Simulated assay, not measured.
Amino acid sequence: MPTVFVTGAASGIGRATVLRLAGRGHRIHAFDVDADGLSSLPATVETHVGDVTDEERVRAVLPTDLDALVNCAATYELGAVEDADWDDVKDQFRVNVFGTLAVTRAALPVLRANDGRVVTLSSVLGRASLPLHGVYAGTKHALEGVFDALRAEQDDVDVVLVEPGAVKTGFNERAKAGLDDEQSPHRDLYDRVSDHYDPGGVPPERVARVVVEAVESPTPKARYPVTGQAWLLLACRTLLPERLYDRVALARVRNRSVFRASLELVTSAVSQRFVRALGRRR
Rank of each mutant, 00 (worst) to 15 (best):
E242K: 13
F147G: 03
V119N: 09
T7Q: 14
G178I: 00
C236K: 11
L19M: 05
L121T: 04
K168R: 10
V119I: 11
D67T: 11
G170H: 00
T17F: 01
D191S: 15
V226C: 09
L263S: 15
P220E: 08
H48N: 11
G37L: 08
V81Y: 13
V6S: 08
P225E: 10
G12V: 00
N172K: 00
R187T: 06
L125T: 04
G126E: 09
H133K: 05
K168P: 01
G25C: 07
T17H: 02
T3A: 13
L62S: 08
T64D: 14
G25Q: 04
L66P: 00
V248A: 15
T227C: 12
D67P: 05
V270S: 10
A113S: 11
K176I: 02
G12F: 01
D156K: 03
G99V: 14
Y76T: 00
G170V: 00
V193P: 14
R105V: 10
A16I: 03
A22V: 02
R112V: 05
V162E: 08
V253S: 12
N172S: 08
R281E: 12
D155W: 04
H196Q: 10
E205K: 12
M1D: 11
A142Y: 02
A166E: 00
E46Q: 14
V157P: 05
H196F: 13
D191E: 15
V4N: 06
A9P: 03
G25P: 04
V18L: 03
L19D: 05
L239I: 07
K168D: 00
A35D: 00
V33E: 05
P63F: 04
L21R: 01
R117M: 09
P109L: 08
A142I: 04
H29M: 02
V211L: 15
V193N: 13
F171C: 00
S262A: 15
V207S: 07
R206H: 13
V18R: 02
V202A: 15
T3F: 09
R260M: 09
V97Q: 09
A152S: 13
Y224A: 12
A35E: 07
L69Q: 01
L263K: 14
A214P: 04
L232A: 10
A106R: 01
D158K: 04
P63Q: 05
S268D: 10
A68T: 08
P164L: 00
A106K: 03
D156F: 01
Q272N: 11
D91F: 14
A35K: 00
V58R: 03
Y76D: 03
I13V: 08
A73Y: 01
E163K: 13
E55I: 07
P63K: 04
L240Q: 08
V160W: 00
D180R: 13
P203A: 15
D246L: 12
Q229C: 06
T169S: 02
L244F: 08
R112F: 03
D87Q: 15
A16M: 05
K90P: 05
P63H: 05
R247L: 14
A261E: 13
V266Y: 13
V207K: 07
Q154K: 01
T219K: 11
E216D: 07
T139A: 09
R237F: 12
G99L: 14
A249K: 06
Q92A: 06
I13S: 00
E173G: 03
R174E: 01
R15Q: 08
A177Y: 02
D155L: 06
D188M: 06
W231V: 07
P42F: 06
E82I: 14
D246M: 11
G37K: 08
S217G: 10
I13T: 00
R273K: 10
R273Q: 09
G134D: 08
